[in-house]
């Protein structure tokens, strides 16, 4: 294809991505170096019959004017990155210089908002991804074994958790596990504890969110693995059977090796999607016990009176660095493959 044709065909797509993905990334980087203006304070001398008093008050008009003229705020350098709400260098230093053992370090780090969000995001990503792959694989094996007639309806029902809007899916589950919802009330009955609430304890909230994550993403792993099972060479399976391999041995030595390339693809997509976990925290109203990086950005931007652009942008930049680190193995491998192919 000629360069000119290529450019003409790709232009709309590239321009859209440049304007609304590349430029915003630049804008985030700039914004993260700025911080909101302080309120303009004026000190007036109030002299009454009992002497003079100095009074400080907020000059709303001047503050408004300043904010309108310079919406970015004032320059703060990398200050936002290092403050308590983000990397919290000073606090982390303190924690490591004086602490009472490992448990103390963890609990004090967890009190810092950025590390709280980061820890949940990482735990969620690295628990939900393998769990989804296992459950998806099991469902795929199960569906593969049932009669052709009922495969259609079974796949239909299995797809529902994946296709549902994440916010709506988490709301539906949230209403069920609520203390007066069907699952919540039943759990209270089983454990004979009328105070039991999945929302109250951090551990139970984390478990709930992870269960939701597995529920939501399992169908994706299932569908890909199921498609992989369809391409399984029949004769290999049959010769394994003739050689006396049990079902488990067949799965371990024939099926799993065959699906391995697909598994890397599934893991990649699952990790990308799980790393941005955000809607379930809104849907389950879980912010008190679990926040994620995406949720932290949303929370900063969603402030009713003042939106914290600097803070949100700094978290965004840190999140993107996280995404790049997450993708690095894939990128390096693709690059090697590409080099290998070119040669």
């Amino acid at each position: 294809m000629r360069h000119r044709d290529f450019a003409a065909f790709i232009a709309p797509s590239l321009i859209a991505m440049f304007l609304f993905i590349v430029l915003p990334v630049g804008s985030i980087m700039v914004q993260s170096l700025f911080v909101e203006h302080d309120q303009v304070l004026v000190t007036t001398k109030n002299c009454g019959p009992f002497g003079c008093k100095e009074e400080t008050r907020v000059d709303t008009q001047a503050t408004e004017k300043l904010r309108r003229e310079e919406p970015l705020g004032k320059f703060n350098g990398l200050g936002t990155y290092f403050n308590r709400a983000h990397l919290a260098i000073a606090q982390v230093g303190q924690i490591f210089s004086g602490n009472h053992g490992f448990g103390d370090i963890v609990s004090r780090l967890y009190d810092l908002p950025f590390y709280k969000a980061l820890s949940f995001t990482l735990v969620y990503t690295f628990l939900v991804t393998p769990l989804c792959m296992v459950s998806g694989f099991l469902v795929a094996l199960g569906v593969n074994a049932i009669p052709r007639m009922i495969k259609g309806p079974v796949i239909f029902l299995s797809l529902l958790p994946y296709i549902i809007t994440p916010l709506l899916g988490s709301l539906i589950l949230f209403w069920m596990i609520n203390t007066d919802g069907v699952i919540g009330a039943t759990l209270q009955l089983i454990f004979n504890d009328p105070e039991l609430s999945l929302k109250a304890s951090p551990v139970l909230t984390w478990v709930t969110l992870i269960v939701y994550g597995v529920w939501h993403m399992t169908p994706f792993a299932f569908v890909v693995f199921y498609a992989g099972l369809q391409t399984l060479p029949r004769d290999t399976i049959e010769s394994a059977m003739i050689d006396g391999a049990s079902r488990w041995e067949r799965i371990r030595n024939v099926v799993i090796p065959h699906l391995l390339p697909l598994a890397t693809f599934v893991a990649l997509i699952l990790m990308m999607d799980n790393f941005r976990v955000f809607e379930p925290i809104v849907g389950f109203s879980a912010a008190a016990n679990a926040t994620s990086l995406s949720f932290a950005i949303y929370n900063d931007l969603n402030g009713q009176t003042d939106q914290l652009f600097g803070s949100a942008s700094a978290t965004s930049v840190l999140t993107m660095i996280g995404v790049i680190i997450l993708l690095l193995p894939v990128l390096v491998r693709t690059w090697r493959d590409f080099k290998g192919r070119a040669r």
Binding site: M17, S316, T319
Partner: peptide, 27 residues
């Protein structure tokens, strides 16, 4: 190759990180 790799990285970015960059310019 580079366009596809860039697209993969863009695909991985959480959408909300980009939203932080839209608001001020859009205002």
């Amino acid at each position: 190759f580079w366009i596809l790799i860039a697209a993969l990285v863009f695909r991985a970015m959480p959408h909300i990180t980009l939203v932080a960059g839209y608001l001020l310019p859009f205002f």
